[in-house]
Amino acid sequence: MEGTIKSKILDADGIRRAITRIAHEIVEKNKGTDRLVLVGIRRRGVPLAERIRQYIEKLEGVQVPLGILDITLYRDDLSTIDIHPVVHETDIPVSIEGKSVILVDDVLYTGRTARAALDATMDLGRPARIQLAVLVDRGHRELPIRADYVGKNLPTSRREIVAVRLQEVDKEEDVLLLEHEEDTSK
């Protein structure tokens, strides 16, 4: 991780509680699990969506369909970024036509990823509605986008970095707030 750790925002228990609450809220707001489809945005949205699915199964005894969305080809910064990102597969096993799609991501920041995910989802069909669930909302939106389910609202400065680490991807389980290594020459 680039930057120095300022504080731990959530530990493993904190993440678990946030996800459990989001799972409850999804079921409550959608009045059950009928026509729900969970879609994780690569990369850390995928294990989060999987966990939400497990909680919903515990609560309701229903396995909600789970898909994976790769938004690389929908990014608005493809022609400006330096790196040429590797594309991965999008894999949504059911039709999203007329469904309630819950997009899941780790951090909501500028809203550009969510915008790309909305476009990518809509190219796959016409869902009845799309909702957004995130573990952390750190503010600084650049587009008119908001989340329907938020694990933790976290006011940040733009210099700070929010690092979500999940067991499945990072072999660690926490949310950290980091400060960019300051360039003292400025």
Partner: peptide, 12 residues
């Protein structure tokens, strides 16, 4: 995509 998908063609 690989040839003209990004500004500079470096893959992470």
């Amino acid at each position: 995509y690989l040839l003209i998908g990004g500004s500079s063609n470096v893959v992470a």
